[in-house]
Amino acid sequence: MGKNVLLVDDSMTMRKIVGRSLRQAGIEFDTIFEAADGLEALEILEKESVDIVLSDINMPNMDGISFLREKANREAIKDIPVLMISTETGDDIIGEAKSLGAVGNIKKPFTPDKVNEILGPLL
């Protein structure tokens, strides 16, 4: 059985670009779920079978850091890996994301090769 991914970004454009980059990188998922913020992401994680989450940090309603914090407190979903995809590169914010369980960070803008390099080993 193939794997499922959840893309979390308030920009529909960016969700499409990430999806396109996954295909161009030769990374195939059975289902690509999409969420526009951390709240929507938590709802999907509670209902669906998701193998990995690719999440933005700066989002309305619930940002990526708050999403990681909330997810860590929910037993059923706390172990699902989250890879950040963000314009943020600062040690403070990326460090906090990693301390809350993020498994890595892809900086925007990115190429399909960069997605493959960072995401590939996690699958």
Binding site: D10, S11, T13, M14, N58, M59, P60, S86, T87, E88, T89, G90, D91, D92, I93, I94, K107, K108, P109
Partner: peptide, 25 residues
Amino acid sequence: EIANMLGGNVKTELSDAGRDIALSL
């Protein structure tokens, strides 16, 4: 989203570690 990525790059250039500058949506 183009503006967002440009803002992120400017922030990276100006910021020490990320928390001293906030980007708007």
